[in-house]
């Protein structure tokens, strides 16, 4: 804890997990190490602890989400916190109340931690300025999805022992992907080499400035990679001005066995979910237990979120 205190002087968002961009190497290590201790707990028959007994966790999801929301909910419950999930998509809060007003209302209920997902980039930052408790970003717009990147890192470490020196390809809709951004920051910090592979219309401006190499040819981008991280292509992007069709996309950017052959022989396949089988990934590859670690990602996601809840709850 001494190290954390020392860092407090230089970092701004110490009390909140808003993005990988705000984290230091030692903070990332702390989260990953903490999560490792929860992996075994989650596999045991008695999964509940009382680390966060008496604490209140509010899940504030302005965007529909299945796995992230249930993962956070489960994580909170396993730590013994009282978890309340507010599904804003269908609630009255959506009818005109501003984010700040919602924040003030919730703040009055004295939560210890708020987990937020919002369609607007920067919404968690705004929320964190207005509440007295810790804020964890569960995905904001196209900006960041820090816990997803952390669980991806944990999955890789679990399989490969380390991240340093690995070559990672991130493929698909980079432009709209917060998962891609958080992973780029995190894997860079942990010493990996990163290729992003996407059609030009789905590559963000100046992406190389984030420390990656960009490719529009899947074969070149996957060459000699240890990890192939596929991203979801949202339905609405398949038609219209980004891409001509799902068929064309699959032909050139879908992960198929022949494209995967260009990566290292034992390369792992990852996907943040939910998958579009037959659009970004061959359905057999997705289920190949020797190559695909997609289900493991979900499993370790709970451990990562438990670690984050524990660490950030304590800070306030």
């Amino acid at each position: 804890m001494a190290i954390i205190k020392k860092l407090k002087a230089v970092k701004i968002n110490q009390n909140h997990l808003l993005g990988i961009q705000d984290l230091s190497f030692s903070q990332v290590s702390e989260i990953l190490n903490q999560a490792k201790t929860f992996i075994t707990l989650n596999k045991s028959s008695s999964k509940k602890t009382d680390i966060l007994r008496g604490k209140t966790q509010i899940n504030l999801f302005f965007e529909p989400s299945t796995r992230t929301q249930s993962s956070f909910e489960l994580a909170g419950k396993r730590l013994g916190a009282d978890v309340m999930s507010m599904n804003i998509v269908n609630s009255a809060i959506k009818k005109g109340e501003t984010l700040i007003d919602t924040a003030m209302t919730l703040n009055a209920m004295h939560p210890d931690i708020i987990v937020i997902r919002h369609q607007d980039s920067g919404a968690p930052n705004l929320l964190s300025q207005k509440v007295n408790c810790a804020v964890i970003n569960a995905g904001d717009g196209r900006r960041e999805h820090p816990t997803q990147a952390l669980l991806d890192a944990l999955t890789i470490i679990n399989r490969r022992g380390k991240i340093e020196g690995l070559k990672i390809a991130i493929c698909g809709d980079i432009l709209h992907s917060r998962v891609a951004r958080s992973n780029i920051y995190l894997m860079n910090m942990l010493g990996a080499e990163i290729n992003v592979v996407a059609p030009k219309t789905l590559l963000p401006h100046s992406i190389e400035r984030l420390g990656v190499k960009s490719f529009t040819d899947m074969k070149k981008g996957l060459d000699d990679c240890d990890i192939v991280m596929m991203l979801r292509l949202q339905n609405e992007r398949m038609h219209g001005s980004f891409l001509p069709s799902a068929r064309e996309y699959y032909e050139f950017f879908g992960l198929t066995p022949d494209k995967l052959n260009l990566a290292k022989k034992n390369a792992l396949i990852m996907h943040p979910g939910p998958m579009n089988r037959g659009v970004e990934i061959d359905t057999n590859l997705a289920d190949d237990i020797n190559r695909s670690v997609i289900r493991e990602q979900v499993e370790l996601g709970v451990a990562i979120r438990m670690a984050c809840l524990k660490i950030y709850c304590k800070k306030n």
């Binding site: 961009q21 980039s121 920067g122 904001d140 717009g141 196209r142 900006r143 960041e144 917060r178 951004r181 963000p204 401006h205 100046s206 992406i207 400035r209 984030l210």
Partner: peptide
């Protein structure tokens, strides 16, 4: 502005 900052902040440029 569309550029590195818009990419980092995740805002449409």
């Amino acid at each position: 502005n569309e550029g590195e900052i818009s990419t980092r902040l995740g805002l449409k440029g």
